[in-house]
Each structure stands twice: as C-alpha cells, then as structure tokens.
Design a protein around this nucleic acid. Sequence first.
DNA 1: GAATTAATTGAACGTTCGTTTTATTAATTC
DNA 2: GAATTAATAAAACGAACGTTCAATTAATTC
Lengths: 230, 230
Amino acid sequence: MARTTGSDGEKTQAAIREAAVGLIARLGFEAMSMRQLAAEVGVQPAALYRYFPTKEELLFSLMHAHMDGLIASWGEARPAEGSAQASPAGQLAAFVENHIRFHLARRHATHVSNLELRSLSDERLGHILRMRAEYEGALRAILQAGTSRGDFQVEDVALTAMAIIQMITGVIVWFRPEQRLSEDEVAATYHTMTMRLVGCADTVDRQALRGPHAGGQGDRTGGDPCIPDR
Amino acid sequence: MARTTGSDGEKTQAAIREAAVGLIARLGFEAMSMRQLAAEVGVQPAALYRYFPTKEELLFSLMHAHMDGLIASWGEARPAEGSAQASPAGQLAAFVENHIRFHLARRHATHVSNLELRSLSDERLGHILRMRAEYEGALRAILQAGTSRGDFQVEDVALTAMAIIQMITGVIVWFRPEQRLSEDEVAATYHTMTMRLVGCADTVDRQALRGPHAGGQGDRTGGDPCIPDR
DNA sequence: GAATTAATTGAACGTTCGTTTTATTAATTC
DNA sequence: GAATTAATAAAACGAACGTTCAATTAATTC
C-alpha cells in the first residue's frame, strides 16, 4: 500500500506533533523511538520524515512552537499602557496568571521544553534560550519598574525573576486537574505568594502586620500600588 | 590483558559513580551509553557490570545516594529542640540554607535526581518518591507549625511547600560558581524571599511597612518570631 | 480522463545499544 | 609459593536505533 484514503498532510503533521509531545513528556526524548511515535500516530516510521527531517528538528519545532505561544500569550494578556492594571503590581499579577494558565493548559509541552534542552544542538539550543530570555526579560522589566517606583522591595531583580519563574513553572510538577484545587484557586494562591515574594503585601497581610494603629507607608500618595484600581 | 596493576574495586566504583553523575547530567541518562561511561572511567564496558547489574540500577543507586545524603544533611542541620533556632522561623531558615548549600555543592547529582525520574521502573520510582516525600514532609511540618502559631501566614501548606521547594531547588539552574554572587549571598537572598513568601517579614520589611508609628503585632508577647534569639 | 502531485508503505542500511561470556592477570590468603 | 579470589579485558550477541530509498496509491489539476 501507499497513500491511504483520507490522508492529509496537515492533519498528519498535527497528529505527529501531538503524539510526540505526549510521548516525549512521558518517556523522554532520547527514550522515545521514531518507531514508537509512528505507531502512536498510526503511520509507518518513514512517513514522519516527510514532515520533520530529523528527530532533533522535530524536538526543536515543538519547543519553538511552545515558546512562540508563550510569548504571544503574554503579548495578548499584558495590560494595555495607561490602563488601570498597567502598574507594576498589575503587570506582575497579569504575568503570573498568564503563566500559570498557559502552562496548566500545556503540561506536556512544558515538560518537554523544560527537560529536553540537552538534546538540542548548540545552535538550536541558543535559539530557544534566546526566546526564553526574551520572555524572562519581560518579568525582569516589571520587577525593575516596581522596584524603582518603590512598590516592590526587590534586592536582586535577576535573581528574583529566576526564583519567580521557577516557582510558578513548578505548578505543572504537582498539579493534577482532578485534584482538590481548581485552576482559579491555584492561580490566586501563586499570585499571593508572588506578591509577598516581591515585598508587595496584599490587603490582608498589611492589616495583620500593621495592627489597628497602622499609618501606611505615608510617603506615597494615592492608593495602594499592590491593589490596582478597578 | 585482564586485571590491571593497582586496580581496586572501591576506587573503581567511586570513579564510576562520579563519572556517571557528570555524564548523565550533561547528556541525559538515555543519551549516555555504557561505552561512553566506561571510556570516561578508563575501563572496559564489561567492567561496569561488576558494580551495577544494569544501567537502570546504576541510575537508581545514584539517586538513592543523593536523597540519602539530603535527608541526612537536614537531620544534622536541623536546630535542636529547645534551642534558640527551634522556632518555625528558625527551622525554616535552617531548612532553606541547608537545601541551598547542599544542592549548590552537588549540582550534577541534583540535575540527575530531578530530570531522570522517568527512566526508573515504577518500583524504583516509588522508592525515590517516598524519600522525596519524607524530605518535603519536614518542610510541611515547619510551615504547619509556623502557621498554627501565627508566625507564618500560609493559606495552603502543601502548595506553599511545593512552591518553596521548586524555588530554592531552582538555584542550580542558573547559579554558576564563578558568577557575581557568592554562595552566602545567594543563600541569604533565598532566605529573605522564603520568609516573605510565608508572610514572615524580616526587620527591614516590617519597618518599611509599619512606618514610624508602628505598634507591632500587639497580640503576641516576646520577640519577633521571624528573628530567632541569638 | 490523463498527467501530475501529495502522502504513504515496505524493506532495507549501517550503526550503536545494553549486556553476557570466557579468558586472563593482579592481589590476597594460607 | 601454591591456591584462591578480585578485577578486568576482549570479543561477541541479538535487538533496536535513526534514517533512506524505491515503489505505490490517493487526491488534485488541467
């Protein structure tokens, strides 16, 4: 036999990508064989090479698409300049929420992007790392802005950015959809933790810390920078 | 040839372990071949099988030793009961510091333990995960104690424990010994971030938040729970 | 409806893999 | 110093790997 009835290049490629993400997440890139992948898609091994010239190029393509999606997602989710959420605290909140939701919706792909960097050639690794740096740069910019304005208390912007990324990406390690916590609850909790991490306490914290006689920061006018206007 | 002059089982085993940790960290477990490992040790492939019956058992042994060391390290570093550092804040500080230092000193082994769980059989995976749960249980206990006493403000102990572990383990991803920050500085910064994360602000934060007229928490006697007595 | 293109099969290539077996030599024991 | 044990070498096993190539059929074009 050769070409099968109803076969379609685009559908096959999409099926390959999906199956590859799942298999690599479960077994690891090196442990997954092209034969296994072909079997999962329901196709002969040789057919894979119509869509991806090598196994490594397949991996790169998956990672690239993931990073592309992540950067695009933040581009759409980021508060518009001049909006009420455009403050550093508002931007940080949006960043964390977008990150959590994006990764929860793509647990397998995130695993692949995080664990399989070793299997890329230097050149392709550099490409992915540059995309990653671009994304993390957005977070650093937010932290820097908030720190300059005095809204955040961050000693080391780069280190804090790494710590936050690590913390909020870690959600995919333990979160299971069928568990006690909903996606909303998880996102909210991570938001709270992040705000505390950057020294931008929320209302509850502040009341508890200030006690009944609290006078606030005093040296800043306007509302609380950590609670954007609605 | 056969047995070589000066050959010694214990030394060879140690050399295999060390070389394996390095190779697996760099290439990944599946990507490392037993031939590569043997070459790195300076021995024939067959010689490896005198010390480890299979490749997987070698991996398991490395991970097991790592977790054993980590748990033992915490056992020695944990503040003695009744000591000044035995408060939840003191224990949390000790936990974070021990974790950071232990992992910084064993970056390769940590990489292996974190990234190669997929390559273990179900049974061996379960074994390692149980050790991990034991270690993380210590952190949860500290968070629980601090929250019950009111020293910490943690909404979800389990989630916060995961977040902290993720954050502080992440240090090995970016830290390079020759970089601008010393191990001490890194440990101190992570300590600060952790304390903020659990709502246990340090002196600087509190003063800034309270302002000049601060009255403290008021409802608690004794010193600040976040600053253990010396 | 013939010609062309897209999609896939089936078989094969050379290589490398984890592992085993047997033989050989160094160190240790008595 | 002979017997025994520990440590390794050398060679080989079958299986699986990523990949290629030629043949074949479905869909599309003209």
